[in-house]
Design a protein around this nucleic acid. Structure first.
Lengths: 360, 360
DNA sequence: AATATATTCGTGTACGCACACAATTAATAA
DNA sequence: TTATTAATTGTGTGCGTACACGAATATATT
């Protein structure tokens, strides 16, 4: 293992000079710089990232811009826990993790929380880019200040995030299409739920829908789909819409919910629907979704190790800052097919961490 | 960030004493040990793993016991590349990675290579436990010398490996069952391929089969399955068996190949089989499998990010040795559903690494 | 040529911990 | 009590790098 000292000896210069060359610092003549560079290459020298990390005075700060979760919106609870776990670990390395939770239905809160985080001048951002347009502003802001950022859970090609961690949502929709078609008789009809206008630009959701439609188009073009617009606020009205959809054809046999709110649809489902011929397919193993899965109201949940998404995101950006380790562009979470029978084996990590927390 | 020095001051002892307490080294009186321990806890002190790694003189050695790959058996090529990539990275930390390739059809070579690796007295093992019985011997041997080991790709509950990285093979079989049933008409018949006796105790394969059968039993008990025993050596004989299976019922509509050799079955398939009503489902995106997938002979491949399995395995065991970072018991690879249409987007990591290699 | 200024280079210390060794204290033997 | 040994504690150095500071050399100014 060749060190800076070794290189210095070989080049007949001091350690400091080698250090300057390695980091492209000024104060070294072109001649010696060239000489040192060559010797560096010849011995294919690499910095010892551990010693480097220890010696670096700089303390990094990472900001997380993540939706908050509550009883109605449980999905983000899991990534948040993952972030907390990772925070515990990286704090030892002199890293500081700021977390701000925004309202995922309020784009203004997204921007507001971003600006708050920005005040601490973080060195990197972890962002859940729920709002496409506002993300444009944020991305620009960060790029102007050459602050790197990664996306978590929701991807968006338009931006220069150095990494994405989450599911391939297009493919996740595709798999949903496959699962759905499993139970669809010839020429039947299937609903696709869309919750309120404001989430139209939620890339993960729109990708799931397009993946879903793609599957049906490619493999089951006998199937008709119908968009069902649901308010999420007006339960009575929502119920009416579901009922009218159910009555809109002879063979209605499934509803695809491209978000984590399949439980809401399940809760609206009238008792007379024969669930053995009818499928609800949704995403993410939230408490409510699991409840309805176990009660045969939801047939499939596609989950994505969301706890790990938070956990990995922090580690990826930490390694990038400290060790200059360039992350993979895409870290895809598994497309887990969760059914009644295997749901209890899902997301062990999260459970262990929650236990750790409560033991303190 | 509290350091050993800080603790020492608080306890009115020297750094060395704190160090002894932290590492449970002898030579410290029960009284002071108690005192230091309390202060350690009160301030919930954690070692700085970076400084710790830098100061540790010990250089670790990791041994990898992995099948070799060739034209006929391409699967292990990918994990091997992952291991090589990780090796490049961890060498910087003073780690040495020994790799030995055994013949996955010869249990003696498995043991032989193990013994060779053992001679270098490695500190930990990465093992692909292809042979269940011989693994018992190896595990015992390692446990007697308190050498930790992790399993890669193939899991086995019987042993005390500190981690497993790979697919949940049971679930992977289950998903295969689901995919298969997609195209199965009522009361049709479907074959399950089993290659030669010696691989019966290959846990990943037997788990896939049981997962597959479980799915059909649970969801499609109208389906009959038939075990097709294939030699892999005697092509003529194998072809006869396939043909006789195809003629054994009116509606034969699929073959499940629970290994990476679906391509072999595809190559045997007679031209007259109508592949639009007939599915071959197999595992792993080997070159040959991809070839037949693209030619519509194979309908589904379930893949598992095998490159990452090798890559992660090395990092997991490295972090364990250097940073004492306790690994997750199970690191499950995604159950990726690969079809003709998305196969080109699979395993990017591997491709990047191969490019890196060839640029040198 | 002598001085001032800029450029290039070397040295020393710190990061937090591990560990060998020295120093101190306690326990035991004579 | 004193000498001897064992148990306990303290000190110092090194791991490989980052970076501030000062020394040496080169260039410019008068």
């Amino acid at each position: 293992m060749i060190t800076i000292k070794d290189i210095a000896k070989l080049a007949n210069v001091s350690d400091g000079t080698v250090d300057r060359v390695i980091h492209n610092r000024k104060g070294v003549s072109p001649k010696t710089a060239e000489k040192v560079k060559n010797i560096l290459k010849e011995n294919n020298f690499l910095l010892n990232p551990i010693a480097s990390a220890l010696a670096t005075k700089k303390k990094y700060r990472i900001a997380c811009l993540i939706p908050k979760s509550d009883k109605k919106n449980q999905f983000w609870k899991s990534p948040n826990l993952g972030i907390l776990k990772a925070r515990k670990e990286v704090t030892r390395y002199g890293l500081q993790i700021d977390i701000a939770h925004f309202d995922q239905y309020d784009s203004k809160s997204y921007l507001k929380k971003f600006k708050i985080l920005q005040k601490n001048k973080p060195d990197a951002f972890i962002i859940a880019p729920v709002f496409s347009n506002e993300t444009a502003f944020i991305a620009k802001e960060l790029e102007n200040n050459s602050i790197e950022y990664i996306f978590i859970n929701i991807d968006n090609k338009k931006y220069k995030n150095i990494a994405f961690i989450g599911q391939d949502s297009q493919r996740a929709g595709f798999v949903a299409g496959k699962l759905m078609s499993l139970g669809l008789p010839k020429n039947s009809k299937c609903g696709v739920v869309q919750f309120r206008q404001s989430l139209i630009d939620h890339k993960a959701i729109s990708n799931r829908i397009s993946g879903f439609n793609n599957y049906l188009k490619e493999h089951r073009n006998d199937i008709k789909t119908k968009l069902i617009k649901i308010s999420l606020n007006d339960k009575k009205n929502d119920l009416t819409k579901i009922k009218s959809f159910l009555n809109s054809a002879k063979t209605v046999s499934g509803i695809f919910v491209p978000s984590s709110r399949a439980s809401y649809i399940a809760s609206l489902l009238p008792e007379y629907v024969n669930t053995s011929n009818f499928s609800i397919i949704g995403y993410d193993t939230t408490e409510d979704n699991i409840f309805y899965l176990k009660n045969d109201k939801i047939q499939f949940i596609i989950s994505q190790r969301s706890f790990n998404q938070g956990y990995e995101a922090v580690h990826i950006i930490s390694d990038f800052l400290i060790q200059k380790k360039v992350p993979q562009k895409k870290t895809y979470s598994p497309i887990q097919i969760i059914i009644k029978e295997n749901v209890d084996y899902d997301s062990r990590n999260k459970k262990t961490f929650i236990n750790e927390l409560s033991n303190q």
